[in-house]
Design a protein around this nucleic acid. Structure first.
Lengths: 225, 225
DNA sequence: ACCTGAACACCGTTCAAGT
DNA sequence: ACCTGAACACCGTTCAAGT
């Protein structure tokens, strides 16, 4: 066959197929040979479009970052940082939850991934715009990513086995109901995320009072901005 | 050679060597052949002691969980849940930070790993003992794990490339200083963890008020269950 | 430029054979 | 019981050859 007059592959086609494979069968299912077969070509063909397999997975991860809504950072009053952060966190988590198997790649950080950098840029810019000192804005970007990727990386409830005999009361006196977690997985994980997000934002709002909103030299502590 | 009169291997020796390899060169460096070579045996020998490679990595992960201090949950007044949670979080994070490459395995949850289950048992038991309703105690265990493993999984600062030209101001107007993050990695990551942990605990303390301290039979209805 | 098959140096795991 | 080498069905990546 050699070279066809119209290319069989493109970066987009490869990323799409790789993403589908990751979603359907997990990261381990993605081998260059398997992926190439799925695309109807031979393994080495992929190397005409990507330098290596990691670059393909990076592109899959970035395609997920593209799904994260950032509009709340442009549209709203900069002083509504709490609400913007809340909405962004929900959107971010939803994007990751839809593609859980790629989260370990995404959690390595933005690197040179454009969409990952856009997310970081938007959050940092919005926090600085809201009056947070740059060092605090950086920390907020970091701690939000910790919490969001941590929640998307491994289901808490799903991390417990669905087998009552695994929880010997002599060893684990308080885990008598743990075997029930698995079947209430969504509920537990989403509840924990909501509780944690609210706690995080409440706590940050308290700290915001220490730094104060921009443009005023004296201010009251915000109750729940 | 065949079978020696004294076994060459033991589960402990294998786990120790695997852990050292993970720490030194990362998860990808652990192959059964490489690990066996490190132990002076042939690859298949490992299968006399573990069912498969995943079981070996699970054991490495559990050896890290063993390092997590849980004494604060036994010693202190149950009402000091906030301080106990704080100290536990620091100990947990320190254990993970010492072995960052195994965190992805650990983040999958306790499964059947004894030390992982002991951690979950201690936190849940302590929160219930402090007066949190069981459903909230579960959520607290979950959200703390999200935050802690998220912070240990990927360095935030280290996730940005150390190359100024990667941050075109036209694309990322607020990331002009991002290339400096890498060299202040520890400071940034630890600062974010401390800020986030404080926010989380402050926020949880606010929610604790909604449920009320233990030992009272009448409490106010929670505003935001 | 873009695909191919062959090749290299690896994998995880199974299994019969050895003591 | 615990180790071995051989074997199976895979890997990621390189490269010369084809059009």
């Amino acid at each position: 066959m050699a070279r066809p007059r119209k290319p069989l592959l493109s970066r987009d086609r490869i990323v799409e197929a790789a993403g589908a494979l990751v979603d359907a069968e997990g990261l381990d299912a993605v081998s260059t040979r398997r992926l190439a077969a799925e695309l109807g070509v031979s393994g080495p063909s992929l190397y005409n479009h990507f330098r290596n397999k990691d670059e393909i997975l990076d592109a899959v991860a970035d395609a997920v970052s593209v799904q994260v809504d950032l509009s709340m950072f442009e549209e709203s009053d900069p002083r509504d940082w709490r609400e913007a952060l809340h909405d962004w966190a929900l959107s971010y988590r939803a994007a990751l939850a839809a593609h859980p198997h790629i989260v370990p790649v995404l959690a390595r950080g933005p690197g040179r991934r454009p969409a990952g950098l856009r997310v970081a840029d938007a959050v940092f810019g919005a926090m600085v715009g809201a009056g947070w000192p740059p060092a605090q804005a950086t920390r907020i970007g970091a701690l939000m990513r910790y919490f969001i990727t941590g929640s998307a990386l491994g289901s808490f409830a799903g991390g417990f086995v669905d087998d009552e005999s695994a929880y010997d009361p002599a060893d684990y006196p308080h885990l008598g109901q743990a075997h029930l977690l698995a079947e209430r997985r969504r509920e537990v994980d989403e509840g924990a995320f909501e509780t944690g997000l609210r706690a995080l934002l409440d706590g940050l709002a308290m700290q915001y009072g220490e730094y104060g909103p921009p443009g005023e030299s004296v201010r009251r502590a915000p109750k729940r901005p």
